[in-house]
């Protein structure tokens, strides 16, 4: 590698460092909030018409799986469009930094969910709690590029996901509130935190 190429690579490293510690404004609070409200609607429907929308753990899990996957895709598309529209020198490294956290977590969630639903449907009760914990994991990992208060919804997602897992295990099955309640609160709390208009939450 020539000196010039090495210098260009070092500039890319510095950009990546900056991206990882700069407030990422690509996540739209409206999109996250809408998923929270949609989740609330799903919980209400499952409570009111359990026979139709929450007949089994499998049905509850697949409903939340599809809703979370769709929500994740909507948030990602919005983030990509919003960030590229800003068109400054940091758009690509910031997107890369955000996606480096989100995509592996999404892949793990999808792979574990798919495997459990396909090969071990008797333990589908673990999925909503597991997914909730993955959301908490991503929120914690994004601490340096999101408002500091993200730790509260992150902690909520992690703890409520863990409690949900143990409750579902103890109960032997899922209930609509056990599966969806933490997801509703988690999404609305994340939307509230990222709607913080403070330009850069850290430093300055």
């Amino acid at each position: 590698m020539s000196d010039v190429q090495q210098a260009i690579a070092q500039i890319a490293d510095i950009r990546a460092q900056l991206a990882a510690s700069t407030r990422f404004r690509g996540y739209a609070p409206e999109a996250v909030g809408m998923i929270g409200l949609l989740s609330l609607l799903v919980v209400v429907m499952q409570i009111v018409w359990p026979g139709r929308f929450a007949a089994s753990d499998w049905q509850i899990a697949i409903t939340w799986g599809l809703l979370l996957a769709g929500g994740c895709a909507a948030i990602a598309i919005e983030a990509i469009v919003h960030t590229l529209r800003e068109n400054d020198g940091m758009a690509s490294p910031m997107l890369f930094s955000a996606m480096r956290l989100v995509l592996p977590a999404f892949a793990v969630s999808a792979a574990v969910g798919g495997a459990v639903l396909t090969y071990a449907p008797q333990v589908t009760w673990i999925l909503p709690g597991f997914w909730q914990m993955m959301i908490g994991f991503v929120a914690f990992a994004s601490y340096s590029s999101l408002p500091r208060n993200i730790i509260w919804p992150a902690a909520w997602c992690l703890l409520s996901g863990a409690v949900g897992l143990f409750l579902a295990g103890h109960h032997g099955s899922l209930t609509p509130l056990m599966a969806g309640g933490p997801i509703v609160v988690g999404h609305l709390a994340i939307a509230w935190v990222i709607s913080d208009k403070e330009r850069i939450p850290h430093g300055g």
Binding site: I11, I200, G203, G204
Partner: peptide
């Protein structure tokens, strides 16, 4: 010591120009 938002913005521009 911390970089300010202005410093961050200008530093990104500087890196672009340097590159």
């Amino acid at each position: 010591c911390r970089v300010t938002p202005l410093g961050r913005e200008r530093f990104v521009e500087y890196l672009g120009e340097l590159e």
